[in-house]
Design a binder for these strands. Sequence first.
DNA 1: CAAAATTTGCAACATTATAACATTTGCAGG
DNA 2: CCTGCAAATGTTATAATGTTGCAAATTTTG
Lengths: 163, 163
Amino acid sequence: MSERALPYRPHNHQTCVSQALTDAQEICRQQNARLTPIRERVLELIWQSHKPLGAYDILAQLGAEGHKAAPPTVYRALDFLLQYGLIHRISSLNAFIGCAHAGEHHRSTFLICRECGIVLELAVDTVTKAIEAAAKAEAFQVEDITLEISGLCPSCQGNTGHA
Amino acid sequence: MSERALPYRPHNHQTCVSQALTDAQEICRQQNARLTPIRERVLELIWQSHKPLGAYDILAQLGAEGHKAAPPTVYRALDFLLQYGLIHRISSLNAFIGCAHAGEHHRSTFLICRECGIVLELAVDTVTKAIEAAAKAEAFQVEDITLEISGLCPSCQGNTGHA
DNA sequence: CAAAATTTGCAACATTATAACATTTGCAGG
DNA sequence: CCTGCAAATGTTATAATGTTGCAAATTTTG
Ligand SMILES: [Zn+2]
Ligand SMILES: [Zn+2]
Ligand SMILES: [Zn+2]
Ligand SMILES: [Zn+2]
């Protein structure tokens, strides 16, 4: 698996998309899961940028390209993609983003730029360890961690809207 | 400020409520903010348990006690309480919970029991430090942290629904 | 091919949150 | 007191997000 580009900087994003789709196909094949056309298309739409996409944005884009779908179609595709770890849900934004570590067991940290909207997904072991230690100290059994950090990405610092 | 009771174990919860309301009054007085009857009542309703409360639950309870309010009334009260750090929003649940550290500058970690719904708010320095270090390593400027851990609280472990 | 299971279509509905504008309330200056 | 402003609340409507239930189509299995 090749190194991923940093989302903030200009890069050949088509590579990100292709890689994500290829990985998804492989992951689904290994688990006998059916990456149907709709599911694959939704995944591709989510990967169209490094900004999270809302369910109704997906719905609108599907509609614009002729496939007039209803909400359940989109939510079911999203459920599938979540289940197989191909996307993540960003709770603080009610939106979805492609997983940058699909296939790898990981706990994610999301750095969300409030200015440009780009999200960087990290899997930092020290953070996970600190969180799990804190939970353990309270005898709490961790199942799922939602860690979303809002702020300014490197590109947007200094670009304070005084223009 | 006295030590707080652990929410999982039986305790005189009225003490939690009284303390929260007293603290809120003091905090608002210091900042020349008006803790109006509606705002205070919403805060009290949120503190009625250690489980997060949805905006429409609040709305229903206000209605049940004669004050037939509309959504904006509740959301405005919630905005006020959020602004002055008297409550927190739990993004993963679309619900609100009383702040256990009102008046203290802190970064919160929420331990959310999926079984009983009780939420424990922690302010653990090692976690905060690890997160800030991870963000700094990416040159990301942190403004807000959402950290919500879902799992089983001590009381609910073992109570696996085979009854 | 036929039965079973999964996936999709579709209509209605539920929940959460906000916009826009009118009215009331609290408070300061005259 | 009362007048005028700003903050807070009331009211109505609507937007945004997410779910239920059932029917039709598709895929898998035997
Ligand atoms: Zn890219
Ligand atoms: Zn940015
Ligand atoms: Zn209590
Ligand atoms: Zn519990």
